[in-house]
């Protein structure tokens, strides 16, 4: 049985990441980052970052209010790339090493 592709066919190579990393909100993406081992975050970053410029160019063809579902999923993967980069590029850990006692919850964001 095959499941329908989440991403545009041009980005089939990123399909293995889509199920876990296309997430609805900023908060969901952060929670996923915090719950994912560093080696997996690095693997995600190493897979998606080199394809990011091509993905952004692909997305350029769509008006912001008319992004088809597979393209929106691709965009979601780029949102996660941004989130994951904090762990891979900045802290070398899932979260700021001094933030043990601290958190900032997102309580609402725009619906689109």
């Amino acid at each position: 049985m095959t499941t329908a592709a989440l991403l545009p066919t041009e980005f089939a190579d990123l399909e293995p990441w889509a199920a876990d990393w296309v997430l609805p909100t900023l908060e969901d993406r952060l929670q996923r980052r915090l719950a994912t081992p560093m080696d997996e975050l690095q693997a995600f970053y190493d897979a998606v970052f080199p394809r990011a410029e091509a993905a952004m160019t692909y997305l350029d063809q769509f008006a912001i209010d008319a992004v088809p579902e597979t393209a929106a999923n691709l965009m979601g993967l780029l949102y996660s790339l941004s989130c994951v980069s904090v762990a891979t590029d900045v802290f070398g850990s899932q979260r700021d090493p001094n933030s043990g006692a601290t958190w900032i919850y997102e309580v609402s964001e725009p619906v689109h």
Partner: peptide, 26 residues
């Protein structure tokens, strides 16, 4: 945002700002 790049820029700014504010709270 008027296009997808602007929306992506907003997302990345938010991600980084939030880390910055978490650092301030720390």
């Amino acid at each position: 945002p008027t296009n997808t790049r602007e929306r992506l820029a907003q997302e990345h700014a938010l991600v980084m700002m939030r880390e910055g504010i978490l650092q301030d709270a720390n």
